[in-house]
């Protein structure tokens, strides 16, 4: 900017000059542009829901919705196909239940240890290790289930099949354990120190304080973390595809091959079921069921943590 000595030249004039030079008003356009970007996340949800609804409708045009929910056999590749989703749901629930048996006690105990007993130094070592465990790709866990956990379990129980529900269930449990642990720990840490100290002052031991005072105060966060973890287990795909087999079954046996909803979608996608066949549309009906399951659980988790939160 050249200085003009003769005339006065104020900052205000400079601002006005600069403003008049700009033809496009950036300040007005940017918020609209950013709003469009934010809208894409909403369109994603709408896209998912519409996709699932439309393709599921085409499927229900060919297979009756009553058969879908009441038939007890899932045999899409048979010469007389049968589409009853119950066996896939049973398979999914079996995996989820086994995962819960592993993840809930171990995750909760880890959370209690980290928040109540561990020193700052121990926490700083263990928390990153849990993060690493949470960051391992699921296909790696699947490989681990098939090549390590299954052989070890077969040494223990010789009647176990090569593909079974037990091994992927345990590994899914290990996969969701860090998530349960870290969310539960957050809930425990947010319980104020003063109510712990009140319990100590009454002569309670650390364990008594934890179980009778801290856990009840944090219960909403802990339950929410478990529900979220189980919702992850329901949607988990690669571990069950690799190690769970592909035999949909209704019985409660965990030693034989099963199929989950996710594993069925993978089986169809990696095979060559042509576009437009009933089998092609069946993956959307299964996907829809899966989506509703996880959505309900996620909403439940949000509801629990909001409704039953203790405010201090």
């Amino acid at each position: 900017m050249e200085l003009r000595k003769t005339e006065t030249y104020s900052v205000q004039q400079m601002i006005l000059e600069k403003k008049s030079k700009k033809k496009v008003n950036v300040e007005k356009i940017i918020p609209k542009l950013l709003f469009l970007m934010a809208a894409i996340s909403v369109f994603t949800t709408i896209g998912i829901i519409l996709t699932l609804i439309f393709e599921t409708f085409i499927f229900f045009d060919r297979v009756s919705i009553v058969e879908f929910f009441t038939e007890s056999k899932w045999l899409p590749f048979a010469s007389v196909p049968s589409f009853g989703i119950m066996p896939l749901i049973v398979g999914t629930l079996k995996i989820t239940l086994i995962a819960a048996v592993v993840a809930v006690p171990v995750g909760l105990a880890t959370a209690i240890f980290l928040s109540e007993y561990a020193s700052e130094k121990t926490r700083r070592i263990i928390k990153p290790i849990l993060e690493v465990l949470a960051g391992i790709p699921t296909i790696v866990y699947g490989f681990f289930a098939l090549t390590f956990v299954t052989p070890v379990l077969r040494d223990l129980f010789p009647s176990l099949d090569m593909f079974n529900a037990l091994s992927p269930g345990i590994v899914v449990g290990i996969m969701i354990m860090p998530m349960v642990a870290s969310l539960s720990e957050d809930a425990l840490v947010s319980v104020p120190k003063s109510i712990r100290e009140g319990a100590y002052a009454l002569g309670a031991t650390k364990l008594e304080t934890t179980i009778k005072v801290v856990l009840p105060a944090a219960v909403s966060g802990i339950v929410a973390s478990v529900v979220l973890g189980l919702s992850r287990a329901i949607g988990e795909t690669m571990i069950v595809s690799v190690a769970g087999g592909s035999t949909p079954s209704m019985d409660m046996d965990v030693t034989s091959s099963i199929q989950t909803m996710t594993a069925y979608i993978v089986q169809v996608s990696s095979g060559d079921a042509g576009y437009g066949t009933t089998i092609y549309y069946s993956i959307y009906a299964v996907g829809m069921t899966l989506f509703v399951f996880t959505l309900v659980m996620n909403l439940l988790a949000q509801f629990i943590s909001r409704r039953f939160r203790e405010e201090y």
Binding site: I48, L228, I234, G235, I283, G287, L290, F291, T294
Partner: peptide
């Protein structure tokens, strides 16, 4: 809620 949708549904 989008964060809780299973990855396989994004595939669909």
């Amino acid at each position: 809620n989008l964060a809780g949708v299973p990855s396989i549904v994004f595939g669909l």
